[in-house]
């Protein structure tokens, strides 16, 4: 608890709009559970609604495989960005998405990177591994450079280059809501703070763990 308090100022600086020298419009988004608890690792993104032309995101998009799990569980990317799959394990994985619009599959050897560039539509893509069935991860492709995941205090902030109307969206694959998301449409002209409170608790996130931790199993 003490540690949390000590770390608090740093963490909040990273994801809040405290920096008064910032010339852009800053938007801060809080996500809370039904019972008021801060929720981390939910995706928040802002889609322009007034035809604002925005620069493309330069964030590096990485879908890691570590300890036979998708790490992170959720990755966000802008459309037409390069998505790098990085296998940090010492075994091969066989990554796939089975959905018809976003079907792909490839084998990725230990320690290698495989990049995909075909994601030209906004979509949520569920991924698995055909060797390790318990592995489960998501790639959310959005049509905006303004995307991030909430920190452990349930907050995230964006410096917008263009004012105007935006659709503010919170998404999580386990959110019990229509299309797993909550949406607010907002005219953003100055520093704004929005708080989303989930109507239902998140469904439990699948543990990406084999039933058997014995290392020398002959299975597939």
């Amino acid at each position: 608890m003490l540690l949390t308090l000590l770390l608090l100022p740093n963490i909040s600086n990273a994801n809040t709009c405290n920096n008064k020298t910032e010339i852009n419009t800053c938007v801060q988004v809080f996500v809370k559970s039904k019972t008021g608890q801060e929720l981390g690792d939910l995706v928040v993104y802002l889609e322009p609604l007034d035809g604002q032309v925005l620069d493309k995101s330069h964030k590096e998009v990485v879908v890691g495989q570590r300890d036979k799990s998708f790490t992170p569980y959720i990755t966000v990317s802008q459309t037409n960005s390069k998505v790098n799959f990085v296998n940090q394990d010492n075994i091969t994985h066989h990554i796939y998405s089975a959905e018809s619009e976003n079907k792909f599959s490839f084998k990725i050897r230990a320690g290698t990177t495989h990049s995909l560039t075909q994601f030209d539509q906004a979509n949520e893509i569920a991924m698995g591994c055909n060797i390790h069935d318990w592995m489960s991860g998501y790639l959310l492709v959005v049509n905006t450079p303004y995307f991030d995941k909430t920190d452990e205090l349930g907050q995230v902030s964006f410096n917008l280059a263009k004012k105007g109307k935006y659709k503010v969206v919170v998404w999580h694959p386990q959110m019990q809501a229509e299309n797993n998301r909550m949406i607010m449409e907002q005219d953003i002209t100055k520093h704004n703070t929005f708080t989303f409170t989930l109507k239902n608790e998140l469904e439990s996130i699948p543990t990406q763990e084999s039933d058997d931790d014995f290392e020398f199993l002959s299975d597939y």
């Binding site: 796939y96 089975a98 959905e99 018809s100 599959s105 698995g128 055909n130 058997d212 014995f214 020398f216 199993l217 002959s218 299975d219 597939y220």
Partner: peptide, 30 residues
């Protein structure tokens, strides 16, 4: 082994000399 379909169905075929899938103990190498 095929990839799963969008509805989650997957087919796996083995052809050759093998143990029928019975033992729940002998799942280590060899």
């Amino acid at each position: 082994r095929t990839l799963p379909s969008a509805s989650g169905y997957r087919l796996q075929t083995r052809v050759g000399i093998f143990y029928p899938d019975i033992s729940l103990e002998n799942n280590a190498y060899a």
